[in-house]
Design a protein around this nucleic acid. Structure first.
Length: 566
RNA sequence: UGACCCAUGGUGUAAUGGUAACACAGAUGGUUUUGGUCCAUCCGUUCUAGGUUCGAGUCCUGGUGGGUCAGCCA
């Protein structure tokens, strides 16, 4: 029953992805003795599953090749960043199970060093202060097919540039009045090489450096040098930075000192998931416009959302492994994510019986005051988890959808005059259906076969259906929240003429208030995970309390019956 | 109509000049006290046209299609 194939065959001969090949090559030919990677988020939002792929890639590389991984906040833009995000990012990385090397790094720790390098570039004639406005700079940059125009301030003397740059730092100028630019090539076919801005003036309070600085380095003048300072060997980022690489290398060329580790930028394709959006801006919009309850809403593709939904770090690693690493644009089927969590939860979760949509069943030939306890297996995939006792009595609940007065032979569940097995309990036969004045079924009158205790056929007769059930007297009331995909379209932000919010699925959340669980659930705490037999994997929500137990459905079980009849 | 990058089943990822492999999805069947798990079988002439080679998914050239770049964002 248990699966042994995943542990044996799949690990043996796994081919390397292109980044691992580069690393192995660099290690083999002695370019590096040890690799150091880094995860460099900007603290301007919550991490999502795309970041999880990057985290797992970077930390995974270091684990595999006995290297190290730094955590560094790319905090060069004070107006967008906040400690709230720093904290959530720290929590998410740790939850994934990774430990960064040494202390947490911040690009803002390097502001002084960066400033000195900027001065060096100025002295060597590779940078100048430009007085043009943002609009002018933009207008003279040219287009991808037309070269740009050199700034009239491009050929100032080093002395003048130095003086101006110092005064920029001192705060003598207003925001936007001046910038420091690299002097490269205004007619480069690569737009990023057309005298990119290195520093801009922002009289804004930074979440770490406060008001110490009023000039802030741009990403391009920060990232590679930060890698260099930290001794990063492989600087892995996403494809949209491909065009930045020549600039990354250009800055390094001008500050590099012989003998030191020189970082290399390598780009891979970011993760895209079907039926969701991944951009920070769009996720923020979902939160702000209250389409979801917050960044950690269980329907969100954020790490905190997935965590609250009941995902495990292991599942995300399984997922990342299956997705792979390459340079091709991709949209991963969300089904693969769901498969990954099912695969893990199937192995580890406690089984439990919970009726989500209860229908009362009275066993007419079962004594009024009798109750008994029946043994149920906790996890068929893991014998060491043992078994538990489940109470049985005359009045029970079964799932409404598990009964039909009349149905074809393909319907294995309970029908009038038919017999099914109650899991771990008895065979029961339905003799009578009770309805209210509107014709709704309110109760089933059944008889049980005392000889079928434990669910074994006493005389060898077979029943096709096995139902989960809960004893009414012993039932624990719980609230269950079912989640469906947030969007009805596979690629909600892939339509030019339509806004992604038009595809929001109005039925992505269903709250069930009247669910009946077996007594095992009485003392659950938030974060506990279960399989509700025949219903799916569930996780106790953070809002859950003793009085009001709230449980999220992480993912449903595969259901070939429902699929066929859909 | 510039530069850079990409193109292998429905979706992803392999094959490192030598029999197109693995996973997910789908289909069919088997086992089963979860219509779960597990097991078996089926599902691609590698975007296109040339070229190099004994041999090309892989190397070269052209084409086609897609992505990225014109923030004082990262």
């Amino acid at each position: 029953m248990t699966d042994k194939k995943t542990s044996e065959t799949s690990e043996e001969k796994k081919s390397l992805n292109f980044i691992e090949q580069i690393v192995e090559e660099d290690l083999k030919n002695g370019k590096h003795k040890e690799i150091i990677t880094r995860f460099p988020p900007e603290p301007n939002g919550y991490l999502h599953i795309g970041h999880a792929k990057s985290i797992i890639l970077n930390f995974g590389l270091a684990e595999k090749y006995n290297g190290k991984t730094n955590l560094r906040f790319d905090d060069t833009n004070p107006v967008k960043e906040d400690v709230e995000y720093v904290d959530s990012i720290l929590e998410d990385v740790q939850w994934l199970g990774y430990k960064w090397h040494g202390k947490v790094h911040y690009a803002s720790d390097y502001f002084e060093q960066l400033y000195e390098w900027a001065v060096k570039l100025i002295k060597n004639g590779f940078a100048y202060v430009d007085d043009q406005s943002g609009e002018e700079i933009s207008a003279t940059r040219g287009t991808p097919t037309k070269p740009g125009i050199e700034s009239p301030f491009r050929n100032r003397s080093a002395e003048e540039n130095l003086d101006l740059f110092e005064r920029m730092r001192k705060g003598e100028f207003k925001d936007g009045e001046k910038v420091l630019r690299a002097k490269i090539d205004m007619s480069s076919p690569n737009m990023h090489m057309r005298d990119p801005v290195m520093y801009r003036i922002k009289h804004a309070e930074h979440h770490r450096t406060g008001n110490k600085w009023c000039i802030y380095p741009m990403y391009d003048f920060t990232h590679g040098q930060s890698d260099y300072i930290e001794g990063i060997t492989h600087s892995v980022c996403t494809l949209e930075f491909e065009n930045h690489r020549p600039l990354y290398d250009w800055f390094l060329d001008h500050i590099y000192e012989e003998g030191r580790t020189r970082p290399r930028q390598i780009e891979f394709a970011r993760l895209n998931l079907s039926y969701t959006v991944m951009s920070k801006r769009k996720l923020a919009e979902l939160v702000e416009k209250k389409y979801v309850s917050g960044w950690d809403d269980p329907r969100m593709p954020t790490i905190s959302g997935l965590r609250r939904r009941g995902y495990t770090p292991e599942a995300l690693k399984i997922f990342a492994d299956k997705v792979g690493v390459a340079k091709r644009e991709n949209i991963i089927d969300v089904g693969l994510l769901e498969y990954s969590i099912k695969e893990h939860l199937n192995r580890i979760t406690q089984r439990v019986m919970t009726v989500l949509d209860p229908l009362k069943v009275t066993i007419t030939n079962y004594p009024e005051d009798k109750e008994e306890f029946l043994s149920a297996i906790n996890n068929p995939e893991d014998e060491s988890m043992g078994s538990r006792e489940v109470p049985f009595s005359r009045t029970l609940y079964i799932e409404k959808e598990d009964f039909k007065e009349e149905a074809g032979r393909k319907f294995f569940r309970l029908k009038l005059g038919g017999e099914v097995r109650l899991r771990y309990a008895y065979f029961i036969k339905c003799n009578e259906v009770i309805k209210d004045e509107n014709g709704n079924i309110t109760e089933l009158l059944c008889t049980y076969d005392p000889l079928s205790k434990g669910g074994k056929s006493p005389d060898g007769r077979k029943v096709k259906g096995t139902l989960h059930w809960v004893s009414a007297k012993h039932a624990v009331d719980v609230e269950v929240r079912l989640y469906d995909r947030l969007f009805s379209d596979e690629s909600p932000d892939g339509h030019k003429d339509k806004d992604f919010t038009e595809f929001i699925n109005p039925d992505s959340l269903t709250i069930l208030k009247n669910c009946k669980a077996e007594p095992f659930l009485k003392n659950v705490k938030s974060g506990d995970r279960f399989q509700f037999e025949r219903k799916g994997y569930f996780c106790v929500d953070k809002e859950s309390s003793k009085k009001n137990i709230i449980i999220n459905r992480t993912v449903s079980l595969r259901d070939s019956w429902k699929k066929k009849n859909a």
